[in-house]
């Protein structure tokens, strides 16, 4: 009996010893989730209090500094383009043929009535750059084993001070995320699903965002196609491209 207990504790400690380092997990997630560049088409379903809307767009992004999005539907948004360079954002509207610069204080406003702000959309730094991680638990989500990581920011300007993230133990893809305020208050919850293998990377193609402080159904984001490491011509990331 005593032996058994020793054995069990030993196994446990052994498990603990061999369990992957939290930062390593996060790094693997980053490697999955980020790429030199990517081009994706996406569909965003925004649930309003009264109606839901479907917005499709194509986005070209390179690193986390440059991105260019063109809206494809509905007709009202067709041709609207958004260019982000560093922390600057320009929006072009074909109906007015104007390029409007969104200055700093506007960046925190919601995009298209969604649960995302311009700033949220612009912040796609690697998780390992922003957070230090700690492995706290293992859980099963959607029949997949996950590591539960608690991420605490190590930089000053993270949107969320703390995150809890459920990472698929095989594919190193986050399946669920909870965002917390500095005070520990839960702010937002996302669930990621429809994980697909794309160019050798596992990638969740459907994300549901929900602002837990507000009543409402949240925002669904689905990538209908995604390509990594393409040849994106440089001019895409210039203001001239907005008017094309």
């Amino acid at each position: 009996m005593k032996l058994l207990i020793i054995l069990i504790t030993a196994t446990f400690s052994l498990f603990a010893f061999t369990s992957p380092d939290a930062m390593e997990i996060l790094d693997k997630v980053d490697r999955n989730m980020s790429s030199r560049n990517r081009i994706f088409e996406s569909e965003m379903i925004i649930h309003g209090r009264r109606t839901s809307r479907n917005i499709t767009s194509v986005t070209y992004s390179e690193g986390n500094k440059q991105s260019f999005t063109e809206y494809l539907s509905p007709a009202r948004e067709l041709g609207t383009k958004m260019l982000k360079l560093g922390n600057q954002l320009w929006i072009y509207s074909p109906s007015t043929d104007r390029i409007i610069q969104i200055s700093g204080h506007m960046l925190r406003q919601s995009v298209m009535g969604s649960d995302l702000s311009y700033e949220d959309m612009m912040d796609d730094r690697k998780l390992t750059e922003i957070y230090s991680a700690e492995l706290t638990d293992n859980e099963i989500i959607d029949n997949r084993n996950t590591y539960v990581l608690v991420l605490t920011t190590k930089v000053e300007d993270a949107t969320y001070f703390k995150q809890k993230i459920w990472v698929d133990t095989e594919r190193y893809v986050p399946l669920k995320q909870e965002m917390f305020a500095k005070s520990g208050q839960l702010l937002k919850r996302t669930s990621l699903s429809e994980v697909k293998l794309i160019q050798g990377k596992w990638f969740p193609t459907r994300i549901i965002y929900k602002d837990v402080l507000k009543d409402g159904e949240g925002t669904e984001f689905t990538m209908t196609s995604i390509k990594f490491d393409q040849n994106i011509p440089d001019y895409i990331f210039t203001k001239a491209a907005l008017k094309k």
Partner: peptide, 15 residues
């Protein structure tokens, strides 16, 4: 319950 963003844009909230 109040939610705000600090000078760096980090969300915070508390009662």
């Amino acid at each position: 319950l109040i939610r705000w963003r600090d000078k760096n844009g980090t969300f915070d909230a508390r009662e």
